[in-house]
Simulated assay, not measured.
Amino acid sequence: MKNKVVIVTGGASGIGEATAVLFAREGASVVVSDIQEEKGKKVVQQIVAAGGKASFFMADVSVAEENEALVNFAVKTYGKLDVAVNNAGIGGEGNKIADMSLEGWHKVISVNLDSLFYGMKYQIAAMKKNGAGSIVNISSILGSVGFLGSAAYVAAKHGALGITKTAALEYSSENIRINAVGPAFIDTPLLDRLDDELKQKLISMHPIGRFGKSEEVAEIILWLGSDKASFATGAYYPIDGGYLAN
């Protein structure tokens, strides 16, 4: 990733943090973006302390203008944009459809799905100026199956696959590759609100017998962002400990 410029949204913790650190370790200049400013800046400090290049930019990905500002910051700071990892997301309200609030539905769709359209709209425009680029959208195993009490999240993650495939078709001829990654349940702060009994139940749904690690997901994101994945576009890559094989 030497001489590559990368944006990672939701980069303050979990998969985003692991991805930002890994890209920087491989030589990229990384823009870490999140709404959590203090945590995001700590990730940047971690990267810089290890000899890498990184900057923080606070952005709410559910707002179109903030996605545009994020891309403009990356280009202004490092001169271009090569890779974008659209990772920011929330779990949201855990109710059945009839009991879900309208606010809860719209918030999850906005943060998890609208953000992909906003992000790619400006990321692709910047990449076209380079004549190449790679975008990795973080979907989920729930991009291909359902899950009780998570209608908005499931709908958004299914939508992530649809917009990824369409974008790949639209921009393959311009050497911009766009793929989606589908993690299973990963040991990140999103799981902190679950009690131990539910965690054990979820672990049992993964044949490998544990939750995934952020670093494991980061490795496949790195590959997709790199030139080693030059023939990969429009695809969905589950990394799920066997979850979808059940």
Rank of each mutant, 00 (worst) to 15 (best):
residue 1 M to I: 06
residue 1 M to H: 10
residue 2 K to S: 10
residue 7 I to E: 10
residue 9 T to A: 03
residue 9 T to R: 08
residue 10 G to K: 09
residue 11 G to I: 00
residue 12 A to N: 01
residue 17 E to V: 01
residue 21 V to K: 14
residue 21 V to W: 15
residue 27 G to N: 03
residue 32 V to L: 07
residue 38 E to I: 03
residue 41 K to L: 12
residue 49 A to C: 04
residue 50 A to D: 07
residue 50 A to F: 02
residue 52 G to C: 08
residue 55 S to V: 00
residue 57 F to S: 01
residue 57 F to P: 04
residue 59 A to W: 15
residue 63 V to I: 07
residue 63 V to M: 08
residue 67 N to V: 03
residue 75 V to W: 08
residue 79 G to L: 05
residue 80 K to S: 00
residue 82 D to T: 02
residue 86 N to L: 06
residue 89 G to W: 11
residue 92 G to I: 01
residue 98 A to H: 15
residue 104 G to P: 01
residue 105 W to K: 00
residue 106 H to V: 01
residue 107 K to N: 09
residue 111 V to K: 11
residue 114 D to S: 09
residue 114 D to L: 00
residue 116 L to D: 04
residue 117 F to G: 01
residue 118 Y to M: 07
residue 123 Q to V: 05
residue 125 A to T: 01
residue 132 A to T: 03
residue 136 V to Q: 15
residue 137 N to W: 15
residue 147 F to M: 04
residue 157 K to F: 15
residue 159 G to R: 03
residue 163 I to W: 15
residue 167 A to Y: 15
residue 170 E to F: 14
residue 174 E to G: 03
residue 174 E to S: 07
residue 179 N to E: 07
residue 180 A to I: 03
residue 182 G to L: 14
residue 187 D to I: 02
residue 192 D to M: 12
residue 194 L to R: 06
residue 195 D to F: 15
residue 195 D to M: 05
residue 196 D to V: 05
residue 196 D to E: 05
residue 211 F to C: 13
residue 214 S to D: 07
residue 215 E to P: 01
residue 216 E to W: 11
residue 218 A to M: 12
residue 219 E to N: 09
residue 222 L to S: 03
residue 226 S to N: 02
residue 228 K to Q: 13
residue 237 Y to M: 07
residue 240 D to C: 13
